[in-house]
C-alpha cells in the first residue's frame, strides 16, 4: 500500500514538473515574440519610393558599379543589375518593323506586402513600418533561404562572405541622413529617381503624376514600391514565348496576323556565374 502511495506521489511530482516546464517554455517563447514585435522603435515618418525611367536608361552599368562600391557586395552576387530587353514585332508581309531595345534596371522592390518578411522564421527580414524599407538583421539570419524562394523578383542572395542572406537596402544608411541611394546619385541620365511620398514638395510626385507608371509582376500581390516608367504594354502583357514547343525568349509568330513577335531578353550576367 505504501509503495502505491509513493509511486502516486512520484507521478504527481513528475506531472507537476512537466506542466511547469511547458508553462515556462510557452511563456518564454511568447514573451520573446512580444518583445520582438516591439523592436525596433523607429522615428522617421517617411514613405520612400523608387522610380526607374526605362526610357532614359542607357545601360552604362554605372549603378551596378556604384552599388558594388557602396555596399561592398562580394563577387558573383548583385543588389542591382541592368537587363537588356528586345521587344516588338516584324510583319513578314509588309516588312513593318516595330522593335525597341530597353535597358531595364532591377533591384529590390521593397514591397508593401513583402513575401520574404512573411516567411522569415526569425524576423531577420523585417519591413520598417515608418519608412517602408525592407531590411535584414544579419546577426539573426539562420540562412534557411526561404526568403529567396518566396521572392518573385530574385533579388535576394546568400552573401558568400557573411554566409547569411543579403539584399538591396535602398542605401538606408544614406537615405535616412538626407542623401540618395548610391545608384541614384551616380546615374548620368537620371533614369533612377528616389523620393519621399510623405513630402508633397518632393519632385518625385511630378514624375509619378506626369507619367504612366508600372510595377513588375503585379499579379503576385506584393505591391512593389519600385515604379517603372516606359514599360507600359510590356511588363505583364506577354511574359513568355506563348508556345510550349519553343525556347523562351525566341521569336514567335502570331497565327492571327502573321506578325513576328520577339520578347528577347539578354540579361548578360551569366558570365558572372563562373565566379560563384
Amino acid at each position: 500500500m505504501g509503495e502505491v502511495k509513493e509511486s502516486t506521489s512520484r507521478r504527481s511530482f513528475l506531472k507537476a514538473i512537466a506542466v511547469g516546464a511547458v508553462a515556462t517554455c510557452t511563456g518564454a517563447v511568447f514573451d520573446s515574440a512580444r518583445a520582438e514585435r516591439a523592436f525596433p522603435a523607429q522615428k522617421g515618418k517617411n514613405r520612400f519610393v523608387f522610380v526607374v525611367d526605362v526610357r532614359k536608361c542607357i545601360g552604362c552599368d554605372a549603378c551596378v558599379a556604384a552599388c558594388k562600391a557602396e555596399r561592398n557586395t562580394p563577387l558573383g552576387v548583385f543588389n542591382t543589375w541592368v537587363e537588356k530587353w528586345e521587344v516588338g514585332y516584324t510583319d513578314p508581309n509588309t516588312g513593318e518593323t516595330k522593335v525597341k531595345v530597353l535597358n531595364v534596371p532591377k533591384l529590390c522592390n521593397h514591397c508593401e506586402n513583402p513575401p520574404c518578411v512573411k516567411v522569415c522564421p526569425v524576423h531577420a527580414t523585417y519591413r520598417d513600418e515608418n519608412d517602408g524599407i525592407v531590411l535584414q538583421r544579419y546577426e539573426r539570419c539562420i540562412g534557411c533561404r526561404l526568403c529567396e524562394q518566396a521572392c518573385p523578383y530574385g533579388v535576394r542572395y546568400i552573401d558568400p562572405i557573411m554566409m547569411v542572406m543579403n539584399k538591396c537596402t535602398w542605401c538606408d544608411h544614406r537615405v535616412r541622413n538626407g542623401l540618395k541611394p548610391a545608384c541614384v546619385d551616380v546615374c548620368p541620365t537620371k533614369a533612377r529617381e528616389f523620393g519621399d511620398l510623405a513630402n508633397p514638395e518632393d519632385p518625385i510626385w511630378d514624375l509619378i503624376k506626369k507619367n504612366s507608371v508600372q510595377v513588375l509582376k503585379p499579379e503576385e500581390g506584393t505591391k512593389p514600391r519600385v515604379l517603372y516608367i516606359g514599360l507600359e504594354g510590356i511588363e505583364g502583357v506577354y511574359v513568355g514565348s506563348g508556345s510550349e514547343s519553343r525556347h523562351p525568349g525566341e521569336v514567335w509568330t502570331d497565327p492571327a496576323d502573321g506578325k513576328v513577335y520577339t520578347y528577347n531578353v539578354r540579361m548578360q550576367h551569366n558570365k558572372f556565374r563562373e565566379l560563384r
Binding site: 515574440a33 520582438e36 512573411k118 516567411v119 522564421p121 526569425v122 534557411c144
Partner: peptide, 9 residues
C-alpha cells in the same frame, strides 16, 4: 526564441 508566427518553418 524569435518566432515569426506567419512563417511556415
Amino acid at each position: 526564441f524569435y518566432p515569426n508566427l506567419s512563417s511556415p518553418i
